[in-house]
C-alpha cells in the first residue's frame, strides 16, 4: 500500500517540520506560545536562499536563516514576556512581519538558481538516524537534567518557580530565542535541503503544521519525529497520489493533519489521558509581577 519512495519523500518533507517543532516544543514548554513560528519559517527560507545565492555557502545560509529566526524569536520574547503583550497578537504580528521581510529581501532573487545545496539522495537513512538522535538529545535535556526542569517549571507554574529563584523572564526569552533559531533553521533547511528553490511564498503554511506537530506530540521531543514523518508524508502524498497505483484526489487528504491535531487535542483534554498529555499549564499566560527586573 505505501511505497518506499513515499516514505523517503515523507522523511525529506518531514525534516524541516521536525526541526521547527522541536524548537517550538521548548518555547511552549516554558509557557510561551509563539504563533510567529509561521513567519519565522518563511523568513528563514528566504534568508537562507538569499545568503546561499550570494555566498555560495550552504552552512552560511543555514546559520543566517537561524539568526534571522532567532531575532524574530527574541522580539516575540521581549514583546510578549517583558512587555507582557498578548502572546497571540505578538505572534501573529511576527508572522505577518516575517512574510513581509521575506518577500522584500527575496524579490530581487526570484528565479535565480541555487549555486549549491544539501543533497540527501540515498543518504536518507543517515538523515533519519540523526533526526532521531537529535530528538532524543532534546528530550533528554528537557526531562532528565536540571536545565530542562527549570524550563518546564517556568511553563507549569512560573510563580512557584520564581519563588524558588528561577529567572522566569530570562528563561522564557531564551527558550523563545531558541525556538526562533530552530524555526529559522527549519525554513533554511526547507529551501536548501528539500525544495532547492525559492519564490515569494515558499514555506507558507509549514509553520502552522509544525505548531500542530507540537500538539499531537504532546509537547514531547520523542514523539515529534513520528508525527513529522506522518505530516510530511501527507504533504508528499499530494503529488504521489496522482500517479498509479493510487490515483485519487489528494485535496481532502490535506485536511487530515489539522483534523488529527484537533481530535488529539480534544482527546488530551477530555479523557483521563489528560494527566499525561496536556499543554503546559501556564502556556500563553504572561508571568505577572508588579515590580521586577528584566
Amino acid at each position: 500500500m505505501i511505497s518506499l519512495d513515499l516514505i523517503i519523500r515523507a522523511i525529506l518533507a518531514g525534516t524541516p517540520l521536525l526541526i521547527a517543532s522541536l524548537g517550538e516544543i521548548y518555547t511552549e514548554r516554558s509557557g510561551v506560545l509563539n504563533l510567529g513560528l509561521e513567519g519565522i519559517f518563511v523568513l528563514g527560507a528566504a534568508v537562507s536562499f538569499v545568503t546561499t545565492v550570494d555566498s555560495g555557502n550552504v552552512i552560511l545560509g543555514l546559520i543566517f536563516a537561524g539568526i534571522a529566526g532567532g531575532i524574530l524569536g527574541l522580539i516575540h520574547g521581549i514583546v510578549s514576556v517583558s512587555f507582557r503583550g498578548r502572546q497571540v497578537v505578538s505572534g501573529l504580528a511576527l508572522t505577518i512581519v516575517g512574510y513581509g521581510i521575506a518577500s522584500l529581501i527575496g524579490a530581487k532573487y526570484v528565479g535565480k538558481p541555487l549555486p549549491t545545496y544539501i543533497y540527501i539522495g540515498d543518504k536518507w537513512i543517515i538523515l533519519l538516524i540523526s533526526e532521531l538522535a537529535i530528538a532524543f538529545l532534546l528530550w533528554y535535556l528537557l526531562f532528565k537534567i536540571k536545565l530542562g526542569a527549570i524550563i518546564r517549571s517556568v511553563g507549569e507554574d512560573p510563580i512557584s518557580a520564581y519563588g524558588l529563584g528561577v529567572d522566569v523572564v530570562k528563561t522564557r526569552i531564551l527558550t523563545t530565542l531558541f525556538g526562533g533559531f530552530l524555526g529559522g533553521l527549519a525554513g533554511g533547511w526547507y529551501v536548501l535541503g528539500y525544495i532547492h528553490i525559492w519564490t515569494e511564498g515558499t514555506g507558507m503554511g509549514r509553520g502552522w503544521i509544525a505548531l500542530a506537530i507540537v500538539i499531537v506530540s504532546a509537547w514531547n521531543p520523542l514523539l515529534a519525529p513520528i508525527f513529522s514523518l506522518i505530516f510530511g508524508g501527507v504533504e508528499a502524498a499530494i503529488w504521489r497520489f496522482q500517479l498509479p497505483p493510487y490515483n485519487f484526489n489528494p485535496y481532502l487528504l490535506g485536511a487530515t493533519p489539522y483534523l488529527t491535531t484537533l481530535l488529539i487535542l480534544v482527546i488530551f483534554m477530555a479523557t483521563p489521558l489528560k494527566k499525561y498529555f496536556r499543554p503546559p499549564k501556564a502556556l500563553g499566560i504572561p508571568f505577572y509581577r508588579e515590580e521586577r527586573t528584566i
Partner: peptide
C-alpha cells in the same frame, strides 16, 4: 516593491 511588503508595515504596527 512586492505586494507582501505591506505586511512589514501592518506587522510592525501591531507589535
Amino acid at each position: 516593491v512586492p505586494y507582501g511588503t505591506v505586511n512589514i508595515f501592518t506587522g510592525t504596527l501591531l507589535l
